[in-house]
């Protein structure tokens, strides 16, 4: 692991990169003018305003609800189904093509149809988030299980372990890194799903906030939820890497 720089170097590099981005943003906004790109200072004061009045939370809470339900249901279905598909060769060959076709279809394209079928309501939004989460969770979990060492499966067999013990001792631990990747990618997709659902189904949520303030040419306020979502995504990645390091110390991703 000697090619991995130490923590201090990494931290300094990240801070440096952050400052660079903010600097560029600043320069660009100065060049384009606040109508097209708000400066960092404008965004900060807008953030303070919408947080202070509590307006931000009126947009945040509906989105959080939809995100939580949609993503949880997506993981709840995607992970177990992924485990089963990864375990069974036959199931895998049967489902591989349809899943890949579905996965490579831009899901955004389905949203207008869903709205027509299900209606302009929260159920549709939850379903959209579910759709965005379930496939990455399923695909990553399945490929995690498929990396199982045949020798260990045979070992378990040689000790007369049953199917349940095989899952507990061999398959699930093998799948842990894949499951965590699935949760990570699934959650990031879920964030996209929430915003898109708000864009199309409108009337509430962070996506609606972005639309609303953009339409009023208040770019600074429109950027507040954007930055918030970016932050949530970044934090989720860091947290899940920490989780992986804790529960799967034999296989640390760098």
């Amino acid at each position: 692991m000697s090619d991995v720089p130490d923590r201090r170097t990494v931290l300094l590099a990240r801070i440096g990169f952050g400052l660079l981005v903010v600097g560029l943003w600043w320069a660009l906004s100065a060049m384009l003018g606040s109508l097209f790109l708000a400066s960092p200072a404008d965004v900060v004061s807008s953030a303070a305003r919408v947080l202070g009045t509590g307006e931000f939370f009126d947009y945040l809470l509906p989105s959080l609800k939809i995100l939580a339900i949609g993503a949880a249901l997506g993981l709840l279905v995607g992970i177990p189904v992924g485990l089963l598909i990864g375990r069974s060769k036959r199931l895998y060959w049967l489902t591989e093509a349809p899943i890949n076709i579905f996965y490579s279809t831009p899901l955004v394209a389905l949203i207008p149809f869903l709205l027509v079928i299900i209606g302009f309501n929260d159920t549709t939004k939850i379903f959209i988030v579910w759709l965005f989460t379930v496939l990455p969770a399923l695909i990553n979990t399945a490929s995690g299980v498929r990396t199982v060492d045949r020798d260990l499966v045979e070992l378990s067999h040689s000790f007369c372990a049953g199917e349940w013990a095989l899952w507990r001792d061999i398959l699930i631990p093998t799948a842990v890194p894949g499951i965590i990747t699935g949760v990570r990618v699934g959650f990031i997709h879920a964030l996209t799903g929430v915003v898109l659902a708000d864009f199309y189904a409108g009337a509430s949520g962070l996506g609606y906030m972005i639309m609303r303030y953009s339409n009023r040419f208040d770019v600074a306020t429109a950027l507040v939820p954007v930055l918030f979502l970016a932050l949530v995504g970044a934090v989720s990645i860091v947290v899940l890497k920490g989780v992986q390091r804790r529960i799967a110390p034999w296989q640390v991703v760098s």
Binding site: D151, L152, E154, S158, F159, C160, D169, P173, A248
Partner: peptide, 19 residues
């Protein structure tokens, strides 16, 4: 098939990496 009163020590160890 395998039986509970017999154990084979494998040439390539086969330890569980996560245990």
């Amino acid at each position: 098939g395998p039986r509970p009163d017999l154990t084979l020590v494998f040439q390539n160890f086969r330890l569980l990496p996560w245990r």
